[in-house]
Design a protein around this nucleic acid. Structure first.
Lengths: 288, 288
DNA sequence: TGCGTCCATACCTGCAGAGTATCGGTCGAT
DNA sequence: ATCGACCGATACTCTGCAGGTATGGACGCA
């Protein structure tokens, strides 16, 4: 069969996600009948039933589930093609880098001067996105590079370079019952409200978007948090940080789309690995 | 901007590859003027000039080069979406595995019985493709798994599991001047005709499609060949195999599309790593 | 200068995609 | 059992655009 048009993929995705032709049509800004027909035609041409419909409910067949996931990938690839070409066509091409707030653990400011020395270096534009959005921005071509976090982010489709692996610390109000412990384990925090990181995750406490907010809320006694060591840099005088012995270590990785041939990306990766190899900065108190 | 239709991507790819609107139109089975218009409209909507045209020649802009590579990826993703859904919709879903002739070094027949014991196992259909076609078949969704070869194949976009790393041997006619050497280096073979592996590679000798053909041609004195050790299994009595000390080692990897969630694929990978961990079979001469 | 090449423009046509109205099946309330 | 609400499919109409033909106009070459 000949390939479906991207429009048809978008139609299918809408229906498969809504599981309701009427709502899907509204979401697509069109009437329901042409949508029904478009999906029928798609199924006919593919020779596969994607949706099971009764007059009461719509559900996905196994093939439909596969096609939904694959359609997302394909639509991402199309969007990425456009965005990357547009970026390449700009008069001053830029290297776009994305991270969540503090997602680079301070590495970027050490990477930048090294990168700028490279003859292939371009202007760098840093995008700070919401938590958990980095991978999607890389997939759909809005950025060239992302600071991702293992094991939290989905690394599928990317090449990566490991930059840093960190232990975790608990951030506690200074009057907290565990504040003077030298170390603790996760079980010690049972019952304490933990932050709900902005995004579709599950936890008990208030929603948090960046380290500053987090420190604020901890200081207020609203919650406690378990965070990578690097976040310690943002600690205020009215909170304390205590190592958590059994929190799984997390890593910061630099990621970019596979099969990328861009010299600018390659140069940035080179600079980053150089910094990573140099190891973490030993933070010292400056002598007068 | 709204996403371009796959048809438009295909049009652009044709023009970008032919660098000639007339030929591209013929290849697409359409007339030249609507093709010209479609590309113009694509550029207008994207807001990027993709092609530089004079009345004598067409060439790609930097943005056009990026868009060509990205369009290929996107079209592959669309084709893969359709094929994977079609496969998932079959009444008896099958696991499709591809390799070039002897591309598995005999591992598959050891993997199969282990795989079949897995509760998630499906029927396995093995596709033997031309040399160098494996990765493309995996990318466009015609197969679920491929035996690839490092450093020859492009692993971009795949998850992989290393199965086997091998040294190389030279296959020589038994009367060859080097036939009684215990070992040799590549430079020893300077001047001898080497096989031209079917596909777009460069070499001197006759075209070769599989190990049987290769042995035949070596036996006839038409050429010599440097091949992974596993090919030795196909050696006939009228050829000799001599280790080559300085040929870069090559690896066989099992590859599958990233972010694959299929249980059947996961089970096959499990079985394969089990076999790989068990190590190569020690080939012994059976006692009478 | 005249000819061949090649992309763009002008103009026309048919069909496919989108809209409106309506049907028909299913569930739930009474 | 009946009615009404809901929801997807069907029937029919219309319009925009993809695609075709003819031609223009720029450029290179003999």
């Amino acid at each position: 069969m000949d390939a479906p048009e991207t429009r048809e993929l978008a139609y299918f995705v809408a229906v498969a996600e809504e599981l309701h032709f009427g709502r899907a049509a509204r979401r697509l800004g069109m009437a329901q009948p042409p949508l029904s027909r478009a999906i029928q035609q798609l199924e006919r041409r593919m020779g596969v039933v994607l949706l099971e419909r009764t007059s009461r409910a719509v559900s996905l067949t196994p093939a439909g589930r596969v096609f939904l996931a694959e359609s997302h990938k394909a639509l991402d690839a199309v969007a990425a093609a456009v965005r990357r070409a547009q970026r390449a066509g700009r008069d001053v091409p830029r290297l776009m880098v994305v991270m969540k707030p503090d997602g680079d653990a301070g590495l970027l400011e050490r990477i930048m001067p090294v990168y700028r020395r490279d003859p292939d270096a371009l202007e760098v534009e840093v995008v700070v996105c919401g938590i958990g959005e980095q991978a999607q921005m890389l997939r759909d071509g809005r950025v060239d590079l992302a600071f991702l976090h293992a094991p939290h982010d989905d690394l599928g489709g990317f090449d990566t370079e490991l930059l840093l692996t960190q232990d975790h610390v608990a951030v506690l109000p200074s009057h907290h019952r565990l504040a003077d412990r030298a170390a603790l384990v996760l079980a010690d925090l049972d019952g304490d409200p933990l932050p709900r990181w902005a995004g579709p995750e599950e936890a008990s406490g208030p929603e948090v978007r960046d380290p500053g907010q987090l420190m604020q809320l901890v200081a207020l006694g609203q919650m406690v948090a378990v965070v990578p060591e690097s976040v310690r840099r943002h600690a205020r005088s009215d909170v304390v940080c205590v190592p958590v012995l059994d929190a799984p270590r997390s890593s910061i990785l630099l990621a970019w789309p596979e099969r990328t041939r861009s010299r600018a990306v390659a140069a940035f990766v080179r600079a980053s690995t150089e910094i990573a190899a140099a190891g973490p900065v030993i933070e010292t108190v400056a002598a007068p």
